[in-house]
Amino acid sequence: CPGTQSDLAGKASSCQGCPNQKLCQSGQASTDDPAVAEVAERISCIRHKIVILSGKGGVGKSTFTAQLAHVLAQNENKQIGIMDVDICGPSIPVMMGLDGHQVVHQSASGWSPVLSENNVSVMSIGFMLDGPDAAVIWRGPKKTGMIKKFLCEVDWGDLDYLLIDTPPGTSDEHLAIVQYFKEAHIDGAVVITTPQEISLVDVRKEINFCKKIGINILGVVENMSSFVCPKCRKSSEIFHASTGGASVMCKEMNVPFLGSLPFDPKLAQCSDEGQVFISSHPESPAVASLQQIVLS
């Protein structure tokens, strides 16, 4: 979508089939969506909003989001929320040990997010599906409508951090987040990549997307950067960084590099089983890297 303020509003190829095409084309489309102010008021008690992005699928966005929540939740005085806006591929419920919670309770104050730990709450469309194999076949407007509900109708309460897990790319879900957080303000984005160039190509596009729409880039995390042998502690390269990896890309694009996460098969196992990796395997090099990234 070129946006209602663009000269191409209602005229671009992407506008074909949109129910608001004629309204945008006439120049009468309102740029002041009332939901923007409603979202700002509804989540005014959330101190920090961080969006997890990547232009590439399969690089570990949801895994990083879940682990970041666990690390932040080690401080029992902090309240953490995860909003899963990967509408077509929600994996956060499984990773947070909430698979099977298909009922979202509603009270006078709105939908209640599902508690993963005492100080971690989660909202995902995965809780509303008939089963784990149910497919979500929705066009953009319906996805945008669900994200609006997550922001306006969920009783998030008083949070220190809201982590927003997104699908890969720069599509409807990302534009909806930018639109609805216009007055609520996102602190910034953490961009996830892997070392190989095929991943960095798409991540460069994501970084330029953030710069173009005004999202502050908190930094880039290079996931699955190496494998550390649990016996000899020798590090081996998994994906060849033919152009220097994420650290070189960050220098070229003038964005912060937060650090690298080594690959640990136990992390993948914990994610599948909904276990807290940092508690189950505190000796893993990945745990030390995670904690260092959070501190940075």
Rank of each mutant, 00 (worst) to 15 (best):
Q106C: 00
P132Y: 05
D86Q: 01
D155L: 03
K182T: 02
K142W: 08
S279Y: 10
I217V: 14
L295K: 15
V51W: 02
H174I: 07
T170F: 03
A35V: 01
D160G: 09
S109G: 08
M224E: 10
I125A: 08
I52P: 07
M128A: 12
T166A: 06
Q25M: 03
E252C: 02
V154K: 03
E183F: 10
E117F: 05
G219M: 03
K231G: 00
P265I: 14
E252D: 13
Y161C: 12
C15A: 13
V203G: 12
K205N: 04
I137E: 12
M249V: 01
F127P: 10
H48A: 08
V220A: 08
I207T: 10
A184E: 13
D32G: 06
E183R: 07
P34E: 00
Q269W: 04
S242V: 03
Q291F: 00
T144N: 05
V51E: 04
S14R: 11
E41H: 01
S121L: 00
I52E: 08
K251Q: 12
A37G: 05
I82C: 15
C250K: 04
N208Q: 10
C152S: 11
D202L: 13
Q28L: 09
I217H: 03
M253P: 00
C250G: 05
V94L: 06
V71D: 11
D99S: 07
I43L: 15
K78H: 02
M123L: 08
F277R: 11
R204E: 01
P168N: 11
D86G: 00
K22M: 06
L115Y: 03
K211A: 15
H70Y: 15
E252G: 05
Q16E: 15
H240S: 14
N208T: 08
A135G: 14
I52C: 05
P19L: 08
Q79M: 06
A12T: 07
G89A: 00
S296P: 00
V103R: 02
I46Y: 11
A176W: 03
N208V: 08
I186G: 04
H281E: 11
V136P: 01
I87A: 07
G131T: 10
A9I: 11
S247D: 15
H70E: 12
Q291T: 09
M249F: 00
G100D: 15
L115D: 04
S107D: 11
I80S: 09
S280A: 15
G145Y: 01
C152Q: 03
F227D: 02
P167V: 06
Q28N: 10
I215L: 12
N119C: 02
A268G: 15
P167G: 05
H48E: 13
C250V: 04
D202K: 12
I52W: 05
V178Q: 11
T4I: 15
D84E: 11
L267R: 10
V178E: 07
Q291R: 14
F150A: 05
I147Q: 02
P256H: 10
I192T: 11
S235Y: 01
Q5F: 14
K231W: 04
S199W: 03
L23F: 02
N223W: 03
I137F: 06
S199L: 06
K49W: 05
T243Q: 02
G3M: 12
A29P: 02
